[in-house]
Design a protein around this nucleic acid. Structure first.
Length: 457
RNA sequence: GGAGAGGUAGUCAAGUGGCCGAAGACGGCGGCUUGCUAAGCCGUUGUAGGGGUAAAACUCUACCGUGGGUUCAAAUCCCACCCUCUCCGCCA
């Protein structure tokens, strides 16, 4: 049985291919997002919780395969035990020069070896199917998450400031950007294609100012360790964060090297401690990373998402925490506060919303979004998403910690939050701070970073 | 990209087909010493899965970079790949 091997954390995984069909055949058994033991022990409870996210979901097949798997393991291991004993005997016969008896045992063991091989193949097939079901189950939503299949059923937790008012018709940021000469989408299209950004002059200054302001703030005020990660990740990295298998069509993939372009630094930071056992005293570990993020955004289009709202490439500062299991929901609250803390000095109107079961990412147990007001569209847009993924990603990447020195390792909890998606924030900033003459006022806190206080047409 | 050397437990390191889950050392943990004293001695020491138990105890299976293969039997032999180091080439 290769099952034993398969269950081990996979370390050097660059050789793992997804076989074109992304069936994760070579990924270790011990990677499900939900504990198979828990599923076995309380299938109905878990199924009901998961139905809050997807009413069609059923655990029946999975439970059947689990049963079959355990039966096969027993059978195979009994045979292996026989084989191991026989091997010892053969070794003893050989050293005692009792060749006849050794040969007799070897003849017997030929059949056993064949039987083991057959059973192992069956077991491997069962485990593959089981795995493919397990890795696609979403995380269990936390009890505080509103149960609803309607995305609109989010709860507004708090609002900051009042809606901005204008004595003129506020312009769309794309028009502002073009008139000010700070955004140039036609030339970006020439270089790359549609939905790629090009910031120019004060636009580039402003975008960089936001990034630097956020990084400085979290370095000095909230204590996150800055990371400059690789911008490409391998398949194991994508799998751990749960970009794979579900979002394979949304991620840019470089086939020749079997690497994926970073869709969000969450994905990269999540694998920072993959296959490690951390000490409880190290936790929580707080990291942040600025990266450009790349997404194919297949199927996305429309007037609403013109300009900087939805692009193939955007900038983002990401916060990421590895915490003890019992602390993670408290850590989520402080993560949201940390993300908000950079929004407040920018003087923008925003709100914090708690997403319902149907709208949270598969890996997340609970998600708050920060939404900022976009005046030209008279609607809110998400600039941050803060999630507690509990042990979901930790299981996939085998990221653990010892609660006490010498104690059995447990899975850490992982949390991520954008702080913030600067590209979207820039549109809110331009639109909110525009004046009747077409100029844009730079918020106080950014002026030193930008090197100016007003962008004039 | 080419040539070479490596990858064994927390770390270092022995082991080239059979009582090897793997010597030894260091570290860690527990204990004993307290006239070898910023030391000595003794013991212990991973992970995962299955069975078992109220929980333990206990027991079995697997794990020597990864994945395959050969064999009754693989750390050891064969194939492919990954990673690290050195040299050459290329390059910001």
């Amino acid at each position: 049985m290769q099952a034993g091997k398969k269950r081990l954390p996979v370390v050097n995984c660059g050789s793992h291919r997804y076989n074109g069909c992304h069936n994760l055949r070579n990924i270790g058994y011990k990677v499900p997002m939900l504990d198979i033991k828990a599923i076995r022990e309380q299938p109905k409870e878990i199924e009901n919780k998961l139905k809050a996210r997807d009413p069609a979901l059923s655990l029946d097949r999975l439970l059947l395969l689990d049963e079959r798997r355990r039966k096969s393991i027993q059978e195979v291991e009994t045979l292996k035990n026989q084989r191991n004993k026989a091997s010892e005997e053969i070794a003893r016969f050989k050293t005692a020069q009792r060749e006849e008896e050794a040969q007799a045992r070897i003849r017997e063991m030929r059949q056993t070896a064949e039987r083991i091989k057959t059973l192992e193949d069956e077991l491997a097939a069962t485990e593959e199917e089981l795995n493919n079901l397990l890795i696609r189950l979403p995380n269990l939503p936390h009890e505080s998450v509103p149960v609803s299949m309607r995305k609109e059923d989010k709860i507004v937790v708090r609002e900051h400031k009042t809606l901005p008012t204008f004595e003129f018709e506020p312009k769309h940021h794309l028009d502002l950007g073009e008139e000010l000469g700070i955004l140039d989408f036609p030339r970006a299209a020439r270089i790359a294609g549609a939905r790629f950004p090009l910031y120019k002059g004060w636009g580039a200054r402003l975008e960089m100012a936001l990034i630097n302001f956020f990084l400085d703030f979290h370095f000095t005020q909230t204590g996150y360790t800055p990371i400059l990660p690789p911008y490409l990740g391998n398949s194991e990295t994508m799998f751990t964060a749960s970009q794979l298998p579900k979002f394979k069509d949304d991620v840019y993939y470089i086939e020749k090297d079997d690497l994926y372009l970073n869709p969000t630094a969450e994905t990269l930071l999540c694998s920072l401690h993959r296959d490690e056992i951390l000490e409880a005293s190290q936790l929580p570990l707080k990291y942040m990373a600025y990266t450009a993020c790349f997404r194919r955004e297949a199927g996305a289009a429309g007037e609403e998402e013109r300009g900087l709202i939805r692009m193939h490439q955007f900038n983002k500062v990401e916060l990421f925490k590895f915490t003890r299991a019992e602390d993670s929901f408290d850590e989520l609250e402080s993560l949201v506060r940390d993300a908000e803390a950079v929004l407040q000095p920018l003087d923008l109107h925003y709100r914090v919303v708690l997403l319902p079961t149907s709208d949270i990412a598969a890996q997340s147990a609970k998600t708050y979004d920060l939404e900022v007001w976009i005046p030209s569209q008279r609607r809110y847009y998400e600039v941050s998403s803060c999630s507690n993924c509990t042990d979901y990603q930790a299981r996939r990447g085998s990221i653990r910690y010892r609660p006490e020195p010498g104690a059995k390792p447990e899975y850490v909890h992982t949390l991520n939050g954008s702080a913030l998606a600067t590209s979207r924030l820039l549109s809110a900033l331009l639109e909110t701070n525009q004046r009747a003459d077409g100029s844009v006022v730079i918020p106080e806190v950014l002026r030193d970073y930008v090197g100016g206080s007003v962008i004039q047409p």
